[in-house]
Design a protein around this nucleic acid. Structure first.
Ligand SMILES: [Mn+2]
Ligand SMILES: [Mn+2]
Ligand SMILES: [Zn+2]
Ligand SMILES: [Zn+2]
Lengths: 143, 143
DNA sequence: GGTGTGTTGAAATTAATTATCAATATCTTA
DNA sequence: TAAGATATTGATAATTAATTTCAACACACC
């Protein structure tokens, strides 16, 4: 299962940094990886709280930052909306079509676009590491 | 000149909303349009202050929000860095290569990528309005 | 099990943005 | 062009999101 793979990566990162594993850390990790992506801090906090009602808000933040550092999560900031956190290792890379009306995220991949991006970077003597493509507009239901 | 065109759009927007033009508003508009893009609130504040030292910080924020609403500016949020504001009407559309080491923005356009994006949206029955493509990596100097 | 030190929850702090408010400026109209 | 209605401003307070602080606690290595 992919989730176990992601967990291993995180535990490895924790150990490598001389940090420690805790009950709370494991809960947050598991809830995050089960969340399906695009989750806000508050949503994650609420979900973790259902399993461990004594969890602190700061602990959610601290561990989300670790997930970012470990490369398991990525921030998504859209306009004035709350920051969302996308899972990076559980799922294949993908880009987003984002509906300006209902806020829906449609996940897409286009291999040709990916290739052209690399070529474009190459032309500018730029070494690409990752990218973010977001197309805003109106989804099937809202257009 | 393109700057006058952008100014006209802004003044039109202001009037349409039943708002009023002011000395401060015109200063902020002019400084923003002369800034070259990717400016932070603080940088804009400092630049405007040089022309009008009595300007308030809140006024910068209020008018930046109007520029956003009018479609003349767009927010760029990269990781934990301060929000930057990109000019939208003074300049042609472009995407960004962003150096993870020195923070440099390289501006690029690839017509083929743009076309493929539209095709991709079409396939999902999605009507694209605008998009944001950011490629993170290392620039010529830093790689 | 003991010990050193990383982690936690609660509360305080910081940083960014927005709201409040009284004084002032702008725009429309007469 | 003077008047009046109301939008705007600057200063400051309030709000929000994220981080820091700190004493109690818990994990990891022995
Ligand atoms: Mn996604
Ligand atoms: Mn740019
Ligand atoms: Zn929609
Ligand atoms: Zn660089």
């Amino acid at each position: 299962m992919k989730k176990e793979e992601a967990k291993r990566i995180f535990r490895q990162y924790i150990k490598k940094q001389g940090l420690r594993n805790t009950r709370q850390r494991e809960e947050i990790l598991d809830v995050f990886l089960s969340s399906g992506g695009h989750i806000t801090v508050d949503e994650l906090f609420d979900k973790v709280k259902k399993r461990d009602s004594s969890i602190g808000y700061a602990t959610i933040h601290r561990n989300l930052n670790l997930l970012l550092e470990a490369g398991l999560a990525e921030e998504i900031k859209i306009g004035k909306e709350k920051t969302r956190y996308e899972q990076m290792h559980m799922r294949e890379h993908h880009d987003h079509l984002i509906c300006l009306e209902c806020g829906r995220f449609i996940e897409v991949v286009d291999e040709n676009i990916e290739k052209l991006q690399n070529r474009l970077a190459e032309e500018k003597e730029f070494t690409p590491v990752r990218h973010k493509l977001e197309i805003y507009g109106y989804c099937k239901k809202c257009r």
